[in-house]
């Protein structure tokens, strides 16, 4: 359908049903499949964390008495709200109010950057490292791997923001925005699970 509006590509007959010709939605299908697969790696890390923690005799390394949760809680609130601002941005894109879309999109990006900043502040104040037993190892593995996804999400948003200034692209239906937003919600959901596992779960 999207391709039939292109003047330079007069496809003779619209190919029905599961035929080819809707390239944009291939991208979205492929991206969703990738995300499903990507979630398994988090599942592996989460279950590895749980198994190691349940089996540990002394979970906390000497000199460490648990994790400070206030800063991460603020981070959680910021990240969850950024999913909402992203929904708003998409809503305005649907209404073709491009400037409102860009506004909320940039706000979402800023919240993502704030999240990373909060994470960096938390890391720099910690008394244990990556090699401090399985506690330190899993902590930095989980938060670091998730942080990489947040950074990727911000980069994707930047790319979409740039593309929104190229004339014509958004009028034809921009699947990249949808994919980025799916990715961002995914990163958000992963964080909530991670927060529960790392900070809420007390021995």
């Amino acid at each position: 359908m999207t391709s039939s509006s292109l003047p330079e590509a007069p496809s003779p007959t619209p190919i029905p049903a599961h035929g080819e010709g809707q390239h944009a939605s291939h991208n979205l299908t492929g991206f969703v499949i990738f995300l499903l697969s990507e979630s398994v790696i988090f599942l592996a890390f989460f279950s590895g964390y749980a198994i190691l923690r349940l089996a540990a005799l002394d979970w906390l390394p000497p000199g460490v008495d648990g994790l400070e949760w206030r800063m991460p809680l603020i981070n959680t609130v910021v990240l969850v709200s950024s999913s909402l601002t992203m929904v708003l941005a998409e809503h305005f894109k649907g209404k073709e109010k491009l400037w409102l879309f860009r506004g909320f999109w940039v706000l979402t990006m800023a919240m993502g950057v704030y999240f990373l900043y909060g994470q960096a502040v938390e890391w720099s104040g910690l008394k244990f490292g990556f090699t401090s037993g399985t506690f330190g190892g899993t902590f930095y593995l989980l938060t670091g791997f998730h942080g990489l996804h947040v950074a990727t999400g911000i980069l994707l948003m930047g790319l979409m923001l740039y593309r929104s200034f190229i004339p014509g692209i958004y009028a034809k239906g921009e699947e990249g925005v949808k994919a980025t937003s799916l990715f961002w919600h995914f990163v958000d959901v992963i964080w909530i699970i991670l927060f529960v596992l790392l900070y809420v779960w007390r021995a």
């Binding site: 398994v40 198994i51 089996a55 990556f130 037993g133 593995l141």
Partner: peptide
């Protein structure tokens, strides 16, 4: 595959970064 890749990543960290995900002496399994 993501499970193997994740597991192999942890093996790599144990091998080169000194973590102990799989090292019993550091609480690993």
């Amino acid at each position: 595959l993501p499970a193997l890749t994740g597991g192999a990543l942890m093996l790599l960290f144990d091998l080169v970064a000194g973590t102990s995900f799989y090292r019993p002496e550091g609480g690993g399994d």
